[in-house]
Amino acid sequence: MIAAAILLLALLLPSLPLGEWRAFLLDTAQFAFLTSALALAWDLLARSGQLSLAHGAFFGLGAYAAALSAPALGTLPALLAGGLVAALASFLLGLATLRLHGMYFAIATLAFSEVMRTLVLKAQFTGGSIGLPVQPAFSGAFPLGSYYLAVAVLALSAGVSLLLSRGRWHYAMAATRQGEAVARVLGVPVVRVKLLTFGLSAFLGGLVGGVYAMKTLFLSPYDAFGLGRAVEALVVPIFGGLYTTSGPLLGGLIIVGLETWLRLRIGEGYLVIYGLVLILAILFLPRGLVGLFRKGVGRA
């Protein structure tokens, strides 16, 4: 319900009479959609019990890959390439870290994302610390092109998330999260579940990064690979409601709204809101915003 309403609103927003705030609202909305989409991608992985701090890296990889390949491939294939590069990276990372649990996995993904940033900073073809200018989506043929791309990515992430919240795959992920040994005994192919979820999650993260690049038209390693991305990706689902589709959607809109307001007021340090929301949500709202409305339903 919530998901459908938000998507409908997203589609209609450009045609609403918004007056002089139109450009600002559309921009903010677009970043909110991208944040929500990244959060949905992160949540997918969390469903299989893995806490990733690497989603900033997948986002960045997707952004850089899409930006670098766009002149040769065109917009849509470049976005796809970005997603695939991120998925490939996650596959390699997954192969190395598959047997890690809990905190080890979190630390390893954190390490991965920092190494990636160092590499991009050091490499020549990425523009290093100077940054990389990016072509606008569809060479700027449609003014709202990147807006609708963001809506599309959001719809895709929400669709995948909805699809995976029922059926065999859903139970396989939940079992892997709640007790890997038990899941194995029950015949769940734990390794395959983890790797595929990781790949899918990273692919979506990479797509989001690509669209982001075509929106901002400029990338720097600090922005694209920043830990702030990973923080956003995990705070939003926790605030909105873990393991749900409507949670990250709703959470993304609210948090990006708060963030934008705070950024306008205090500038640097606005990320403090993420820290506080994270702490408060863990302590007082363990089931997220969505959990407030759903009494008595299990989290499985």
């Binding site: 969390a46 019990g49 806490l51 809990g102 905190m103 979190a106 923080v231 995990l234 705070v235 926790i238 205090i266 640097e268 340090g269 606005y270 990320l271 403090v272 993420y274 820290g275 506080l276 929301v277 994270l278 702490i279 863990i282 302590l283 363990p286």
Partner: peptide, 24 residues
Amino acid sequence: GAPELNQMLLTFGLSVALQNLALL
């Protein structure tokens, strides 16, 4: 007594909050 995931996220949140508070 909470799941490990929650504990990690909590301290991570504290880290983000303290860092940005100092920045402010």
